[in-house]
Design a protein around this nucleic acid. Structure first.
Length: 809
RNA sequence: GCAGGUGUGGCGAAAUGGCAGACGCAAGGGACUCAAAAUCCCUCGAGGGCAACUUCAUGUGGGUUCGACUCCCACCACCUGCACCA
């Protein structure tokens, strides 16, 4: 069989017949399958694309044969850094390179022979799409969830540009190797922090890998504790946040972050010089150095003192850069006895260490003791457990008006502005009179102008385009300017799964009624690297749209599957050639079905691993092995159609076991074992075929089932064979075989007989026997009886259909 | 440092607490062939034995159990994420 030829033939026929068209009127059994869309940053598909799109297509085909109306759209994440970097690398304008890449990739994706719903194709760089990216921005802006503030960005002095966090490796610009500095710039943010609690709670009901839920949970970083107000002698209020308010009596100093607003007020004249020096020094340190746990903690006394509201003790206030201004209140209390970091700091600066927690049994453990225990040296709270004391102390602080229970989150607001050309324009206008004004909805989309001077230079390249920048204020009509920045590509991809089903809607972002039926995505396939970015942002935006009443669902992806990464044969990240041949070369030599099948069989899909092409020619051979037996079997005359003896029963067992296991394997993306079962079935039919006296009618049925079983994995081959044996087009409209449980019940089975847990013998038993009978028969076995002779059987263990274990003394 | 994950033949990998290594690759042998390829059949964790057999083996060390790749504890190695989060 010429695999390359038949693949071409069937791809064309399927497309012409619109075989996989999604039926929008039949949504009761819809299945929304989505593979994370790709950046158009290459001209040709590599093995990684096949690994992602080819195999999830096979999953979709399986679901389709299981009777689902599968919606599997395809599109491109075409705005943003990857596409722009490709343009920089090749020197081609992003508009041109993006369109060229999309056209090339689309043509090849069509050649995968996938069941993709191209009628719903979208591309985030098209105005029809980014119209709604802008609309979304305006909705967030209206609600105060999109806002501007001064914030530090990564600045590469050599490239003269702002760069993304992903482009900074250990403080070094990944492109030119020079040191990246922090620079304060006015930036747009989305207030994802408002959704911290909802994002945390929503995780419970999702069918996601636990690992990924945990990543998000840690990223959100909920911390339950208390705020405590310390007053200085001059009457300034210093609020600290602590998760260990039970150690409040052990506070012997406070620390304030160097960037904190109150630092200047706290510093006394005597300490001014040393504090100034310290702040200068710490500003020089980069983030890595400053936030490294290995770096020794340093600090300097401000000259001021604060009063502990509980015991009125006077404690010194330090400035130290291990405290971050951006988290919680930017001021922390120092409790040397019960925190390792504080302990080191107190030793270094000779500060008092006061034990306030003992072990639960009352003993005094070595310091620092960081576990929960029982309070001591804490007035009326002595003897309470840490857990109880937390509650009691918060209560007292609230009474005193000096503190309160408080929850903090590590998650920060999402920085969405990019000083780049290739992104969605920010739909706001800065007016000297009216301030920042959203572009009126009827003026959307704000189109990205086609400019020649688009390379990044630190400020949005759009700022130099006066015909774009200069506009009239929509409110007052006077001269105003647009925003020169563009949006982070993750904004574009945060709602694409909502837009896909209704992507041609030019009146609204989507029809609420339709989208409520289509969402959530039933299975979302993509890499784990997006755990704390795209997957978090999409959940945030979905929850926001839900709050605004545009949607009824509040989670976009019900089930999430991470495929492992396919690596080069050297175990390193896949590049063009370290996989041996290119995808196209494999396909022209073995066909895409063999490539798919090899990928499914040779690696665990959720683990991935180094690419190895050793087995691919054998996948082709395996298909040929199927072709030979099926062709032969189907051509036989019908004889012995009533024969159903042990041979038929055995083959029927393997058939139904294979169906059961393959179905389960496909459901949970264990394609390697699913294919292994199919190989066993093929071996079994070969064995059966070698018999003299066969039931050829039954054999034909098995042969046809083999084709239906393999159809999702090798769609072209299965279709061709289906035609060869004279069955009606198309095999992909057939239903997947269903296993008959009654065929899995065996009359006899071989079990293992153990004496003292060692295998002694094997025994054929009748499955109708009860345990007494099984033990009785086991004891009759020659080797068994020799071993138990003259001894006492103290225990008899029977594991149904598996083993008997006799424990003797 | 903290959290999570992984560790099984020469290789990719299988094993609801119950015959470790399914299925396949590589390797070896045989059949077919003038020959090769393809195909078909057999062997294939390691050590010992002519053999029936037997001992040792799932990163290391303990434990629970009649029985542990699987559960528990400690440790080692590698991978990933977070990284002074108060």
């Amino acid at each position: 069989m010429d695999y390359v030829e038949i693949e071409k033939k069937w791809n064309q026929k399927w497309e012409k017949d619109n075989l996989y068209k999604f039926d929008t009127n039949n949504l009761d059994k819809k299945f929304y399958l989505l593979e994370m869309f790709s950046y158009p940053s290459a001209l040709s598909l590599h093995l990684g694309h096949w690994w992602n799109f080819g195999i999830s297509d096979s999953f979709g085909r399986f679901k389709r044969m299981k009777g689902y109306n599968v919606f599997q759209p395809m599109g491109f994440d075409s705005f943003g850094l990857p596409a722009e970097n490709y343009a920089i690398k090749t020197g081609i304008h992003p508009v041109e390179s993006t369109h060229k890449n999309i056209a090339a990739m689309e043509a090849q994706l069509r050649n995968i022979g996938g069941t993709f719903n191209w009628e719903n194709e979208l591309s985030t760089c098209e105005p029809e799409y980014y119209h709604w990216t802008q609309w979304l921005f305006l909705k967030l802006f209206e609600k105060g969830l999109a806002y501007q503030k001064e914030a530090p960005v990564n600045w590469c002095p050599s490239c003269n540009t702002v760069i993304a966090n992903e482009q900074v490796n250990e403080g070094i610009c990944e492109r030119c190797g020079s040191e990246v500095i922090k620079k304060n710039m006015k930036q747009w943010f989305f207030k994802i922090t408002d959704y911290a609690e909802k994002l945390l709670n929503g995780l419970d009901k999702l069918d996601w890998p636990e690992k990924t839920k945990l990543l998000q949970k840690n990223w959100i970083g909920k911390s339950v504790g208390a705020e405590v107000d310390f007053m200085t002698e001059k009457g300034q209020k210093l609020t600290v946040f602590t998760s260990r308010v039970d150690t409040l009596y052990g506070v012997t100093w406070l620390v304030i972050a160097p960037e904190h607003k109150l630092v200047d007020e706290l510093v006394t004249d005597e300490c001014k010089e040393s504090v100034k020096q310290y702040i200068l020094e710490s500003a020089k340190k980069d983030d890595i150095l400053r936030t490294s746990t290995i770096t020794e903690k340093t600090g300097v006394f401000t000259g001021s003192y604060a009063i502990n509201p509980l015991n009125n003790k006077k404690v010194p206030i330090f400035v130290a850069d291990y405290v971050l201004a951006s988290y919680a209140t930017g001021i922390v209390m120092g409790v040397a006895a019960h925190d390792t970091r504080d302990y080191d700091f107190a030793k270094k600066y000779n500060i008092d260490i006061v034990r306030v927690i003992n072990a639960k049994d009352g003993s005094e453990p070595e310091l620092p003791f960081t576990e929960y225990g029982v309070l001591t040296n804490s007035d009326e709270f002595d003897g309470m457990t840490s857990e109880d004391a937390k509650k009691a102390i918060i209560e007292k602080l609230e009474k005193l008006g000096a503190g309160r229970g408080k929850v903090n989150y590590k998650i920060r607001d999402w920085s969405v502005a990019r000083q780049r050309y290739w992104g969605c324009p920010i739909p706001v206008i800065h007016c000297p009179h009216c301030g920042t004004v959203g572009v009126p909805e009827q003026d959307l989309p704000v189109r990205l102008p086609h400019i020649t001077d688009w390379k990044p230079e630190g400020e949005g390249p759009l700022g130099k385009v006066s015909e774009y920048m200069n506009v009239k204020c929509p409110k007052c009509g006077q001269d105003a300017r647009r925003d020169a920045d563009t949006l982070d590509t993750f904004v574009c991809s945060s709602f694409y799964q909502l837009r896909y089903p209704d992507c041609h809607n030019d009146k609204e972002i989507f029809s609420k009624e339709y989208i409520n039926k289509m969402l959530p995505v039933d299975a979302y396939v993509g890499g784990v690297e997006h755990a704390t970015s795209h997957l978090l942002y999409s959940r945030f935006i979905t929850k926001f749209l839900n709050d605004m009443g545009y949607l009824d669902i509040d989670e976009p992806f019900q089930r999430l599957i991470h495929q492992g990464m396919i690596l080069g044969s050297d175990g390193k990240k896949m590049s063009k050639r370290n996989g041996g041949k290119t995808a196209d070369e494999y396909i022209s030599e073995f066909g895409s079905d063999a490539l798919r099948l090899h990928m499914m069989f040779s690696l665990k899909y959720i683990d991935g691993g180094p690419w190895n092409d050793d087995g691919i020619k054998h996948m082709k051979a395996f298909m040929e092995r199927i072709e030979r037996i099926v062709t032969k079997v189907v051509a036989q005359e019908d004889v012995n159609s009533d024969k159903y003896e042990s041979e038929e029963k055995e083959l029927d067992y393997v058939l139904n076991y294979t169906i059961k296991e393959m179905t389960a394997g496909f459901e949970d993306f264990s394609f390697n074992t699913a294919v292994a079962r199919l190989m066993e079935l093929v071996n079994a039919i070969y064995k059966y075929d070698s018999l003299d006296n066969k039931n050829t009618v039954f054999e034909k049925k098995v042969a046809k089932d083999i084709l239906r079983l393999i159809a999702p994995a090798t769609p072209h081959f299965a279709e061709e064979m289906w035609e060869v044996i004279g069955e009606e087009y198309s095999i992909h409209n057939q239903s997947y075989p269903v296993s008959d449980e009654s065929k899995l019940v065996k009359n006899t089975v071989e079990i293992v007989v153990q004496v003292n847990s060692k295998i002694v013998s094997r025994l054929d038993i009748d499955t109708s026997w009860d345990n007494v009978k099984i033990i009785e028969e086991a004891k009759k076995e020659e080797k068994v009886s020799a071993l138990i002779e003259g001894k006492t059987v103290v225990k008899e263990i029977v594991v149904p259909n598996r083993l008997v274990n006799l424990i003797v003394k």
